[in-house]
């Protein structure tokens, strides 16, 4: 009933959010796949991508004015900058917060504490260095980002949502290729299924783990840029809520399962936004985390199940 009126008007922004959740959720699920641990500092990887995109675009666009095809170029540059920022921070996290614990065969709880510590460290470092106020990214578009670009079922799809969808789909397809067709993907799947035996096959486990963090960081960092490009802007706390939501999405789809993270992200984004229509905007976060609790109670392995190392 609440959905009969303007369903698509709520669905489209939900879908766009869902793409962002999916990109972030993949970082959780990939790392969980190879280490069976939740990288709770991943929200800061996302935030790092936001700042990397912010600094790069604000520096570039400060000198030139985007027009026509150069808008596309700026978006690409922003995504690459965000991805690199996320990838670098994710790699450093692995080296500093996790690998030393692995070498000492630390218990799982130590990893969790280390993750939370690293998360707070990065959060506060960013707050101190980059300021406590949220900052907008210089817009690479000549038109206003909320102007509808085209219409689906009578609902205008804004330029911003279209950019998110296109970038996310490209990255998801690239990830799928990576996991299924490359030697790195083969290594990631082997480590996820049986790390000891992967080592016997000649897989350098530490190297694969580091590369998995980087891949997750690339996706999360690009998502951070896309998120910051929108009305939310970039701030040192920007990772907190989307990070938890994406974690929820990963659990919803089945943690460790790559397709699960994609599906969980899209579903969560859509459900969340439909709840805006049906309940109230202020209940969005309640709905999301209610879903998390519900999934954990009813089907802890998620929709697609916990399938470590399953080819995507």
């Amino acid at each position: 009933m609440c959905l009969t009126h303007n369903f698509w008007g709520f669905f489209v922004p939900g879908l766009a959010n869902g793409f962002l959740y999916a990109l972030i959720a993949l970082g959780y699920t990939l790392v969980y796949g190879v280490l069976q641990l939740i990288n709770f500092a991943h929200s800061e990887v996302f935030m790092s991508g936001g700042f990397a995109g912010l600094f790069t675009l604000n520096w570039l666009i400060g000198k030139h004015h985007p027009a026509g095809m150069s808008s596309v170029g700026y978006v690409v540059i922003g995504c690459v900058a965000g991805a690199v920022g996320g990838g670098v921070v994710a790699y450093l996290l692995e080296r500093v917060a996790y690998r030393p614990l692995r070498r000492r065969h630390a218990p799982k709880l130590a990893f969790l504490i280390s993750a939370i510590g690293a998360s707070y460290f990065l959060l506060n470092l960013a707050g101190k260095e980059f300021g406590r106020d949220s900052r907008p990214i210089a817009q690479p578009f000549t038109q206003t980002q909320t102007d509808p670009l085209f219409k689906i079922f009578g609902t205008g799809v804004s330029l911003y949502y279209a950019v998110i969808a296109v970038v996310a789909i490209i990255m998801l397809v690239m990830l799928d290729r990576l996991v299924n067709k490359t030697r790195l993907g083969q290594g990631i799947r082997a480590v996820a299924q049986d790390a000891d035996t992967a080592g016997l096959m000649g897989v350098d486990i530490n190297r694969v783990i580091a590369q998995t963090f980087i891949v997750g960081g690339l996706l999360g960092g690009a998502a951070g840029f896309l998120y910051g490009l929108g009305p939310a802007n970039v701030s040192y706390t920007m990772g907190f809520t989307p990070g938890l939501k994406a974690f929820t999405a990963a659990v919803l789809g089945g943690i460790g399962n790559i397709r699960g993270a994609m599906l969980g992200g899209l579903l969560l984004g859509i459900i969340e936004n439909l709840s805006v229509a049906c309940i109230s905007p202020s209940w969005v976060d309640v709905v999301s985390f209610f879903i998390l609790v519900l999934v954990l109670l009813v089907r802890p392995t998620g929709i697609l199940g916990e399938r470590l190392g399953r080819s995507a």
Binding site: R183, Q186, G187, R189, A190, Q193, D194, D196, T197, A198, L200, M201, G202, V203, R307, L308, G309, R310, S311
Partner: peptide
């Protein structure tokens, strides 16, 4: 210690991982 969610062929390819 077979990789359970890889096909027989993929398991054999894992054996040759060191060759690429």
């Amino acid at each position: 210690r077979i990789f359970p969610r890889m096909s027989v062929l993929e398991n054999l390819q894992m054996g040759a991982y060191r060759f690429g």
